[in-house]
């Protein structure tokens, strides 16, 4: 009886982790392995795959449309990440200072609402607001010299516009992450600084920022990954246009698979994106390690 109990006790943990392990193995690890295998094949989802060797990867080097998509993806990342992180830290600090007031609570909820809204809905709403036929929106933006009717129609401004809308939609998520870290900072640190004559900026620079650093690094990493994988918001707003100026890598891979029947090549594109994300993950891990040792 004791032996049997011991046996059950020893295998029980494996039973608990089995469902999630199976899900991970089936949908994450297996799909990754399949993606790598098929990226060396000519595959259109209909005919049996044919081995192509490195052809799909060689093609990545010469495919101008892919280079354009890669460039656009990086441009979006460069525009989105710094702004998103700065705004999230700024708003988290402001809201943390008023965390018990009604205004603080309303602001927190208002900033978080776009995060939980569907990207397709957000994209459609913004596209409608920016069609230049909404006098309130048009009037507001024209005060800053911006003609909203033209923003999505020019290949120069379309990418900036979608990047800014991505920032607006997602910075609330990072703000909430930062708020959680901010609340963990003991009030006694700030009180001590105040007693020593530290001003608002000094307290922010010497207490808030250093203690928020691990959260900021996490924000940067998540924001980079999310911006590199941008798809649905842009798809609904511009569909990659005008003249491919907002075409991203994920959108390109999607088109290659479902429109052009080049699933093998699309997987090579996706793997390249995966490598970019992976290298950034390594970089972030390095940062985190250094951070932990400093703390």
């Amino acid at each position: 009886m004791k032996k049997q109990r011991k046996f059950w006790r020893s295998i029980a943990p494996y039973g608990y982790v089995m469902p999630i392990s199976l899900i991970l193995l089936t949908f994450v690890v297996a799909s990754l392995v399949i993606s790598v295998i098929f990226s060396f094949m000519k595959y259109n989802l209909l005919l049996p795959p044919e081995f192509l060797g490195l052809e799909n990867y060689k093609r990545l080097l010469t495919d101008e449309k892919m280079h354009l998509a890669l460039g656009n993806t990086l441009k979006i990342m460069i525009m989105v990440v710094p702004l998103q992180v700065v705004l999230s830290v700024l708003f988290a600090t402001l809201i943390a200072a008023r965390k018990n007031s009604l205004a603080g609570k309303i602001a927190k909820a208002a900033i978080f609402i776009p995060v939980i809204s569907s990207s397709a809905v957000v994209g459609t709403v913004w596209k409608t607001m920016l069609n230049g036929r909404n006098p309130v929106i048009q009037g507001f933006f024209s005060a800053f010299g911006i003609d909203t009717g033209m923003l999505l129609g020019s290949s120069t401004t379309a990418i900036i516009t979608v990047a800014m809308i991505m920032v607006w939609k997602n910075f609330g998520y990072y703000m909430v992450l930062n708020l959680a870290s901010l609340t963990a900072i003991p009030d006694s640190y700030y009180e001590a600084a105040k007693v020593d004559g530290g001003g608002v900026m000094q307290r922010f620079i010497h207490i808030t920022l250093p203690l928020l650093k691990p959260a900021i690094i996490m924000d940067v990493f998540l924001s980079v990954v999310m911006s590199l994988q941008s798809f649905d918001l842009i798809y609904t707003m511009t569909g990659g246009g005008p003249s491919n100026s907002t075409l991203t890598m994920v959108m390109y891979a999607y088109d290659q698979t479902f429109q052009n029947g080049k699933a093998g090549y699309a997987m090579a594109v996706s793997n390249l994106l995966f490598l970019i994300v992976l290298s950034l993950l390594m970089l972030q891990k390095g940062f985190m390690k250094r951070e932990a040792s400093e703390i």
Partner: peptide
């Protein structure tokens, strides 16, 4: 209207 948006190009 020559922006494809969510419509197919």
């Amino acid at each position: 209207g020559f922006n494809n948006g969510s419509m197919n190009m």
